[in-house]
Design a protein around this nucleic acid. Structure first.
Lengths: 92, 92
DNA sequence: GACCAACGTTAAGTCCTCTTGACGTCAAGT
DNA sequence: ACTTGACGTCAAGAGGACTTAACGTTGGTC
């Protein structure tokens, strides 16, 4: 069975990252428009990011994490550190 | 002038992230197929990531960074830490 | 009431991230 | 010579990340 293609998305699809982004944004007192301006995207993009199951490009995620004084892993990692050791990569 | 839409990409478009991903992969002795299997994407995706100006989704980037025992910022941040303080976000 | 800021939804369009399949090249081993 | 593994390129297709524009709702102020 062929998996659907398209950008890799959150494994659980519950929009948890969007909730964390919104919380971090409010933590530093930014509006959605303010964050949008800070990272040079449209406000619609910020709304989609906060309200939906959305997978931004890594470059946008980095800009957002910096603007929110956080890190990409803190905002988007489905398995926060301490929840389990990284899976050992298979050797060739 | 309307900017072209589509995923946010590397600001300098020089494929530097791909070079870092490849170096990190070789550092731990993985083949492209091995990394592809570890992060559950196709080998073509890994090739595109390493050889082109490519902006993976943040979720794929996190999986790759973990498999390579690194971090998203280390592999994809165009401005590594220490190159400048984060820009202060505008208050509402 | 009017006005404003902030937010959420809808729509249509452009661009790119992924997928599979196939082919070719290179290097090492037998 | 042949075989195998590793890598890079090309093609076509599906899905979605972004864009602008517009509208509606909510809450606060005057």
């Amino acid at each position: 069975m062929t998996p659907p293609s398209g950008p890799v998305r959150s494994p659980d699809g519950d929009g948890a990252a969007g909730t964390r982004v919104r919380a971090a944004r409010k933590e530093i007192g930014l509006t959605q428009q303010g964050l949008a301006a800070a990272v040079q995207v449209s406000r619609q993009t910020i709304i989609a990011m906060e309200t939906g199951d959305y997978a931004p490009s890594v470059y946008l995620a980095i800009k957002v994490a910096k603007a929110l004084r956080s890190s990409v892993e803190a905002l988007w990692d489905p398995e926060p550190p301490g929840e389990g050791l990284p899976r050992a990569a298979a050797a060739p």
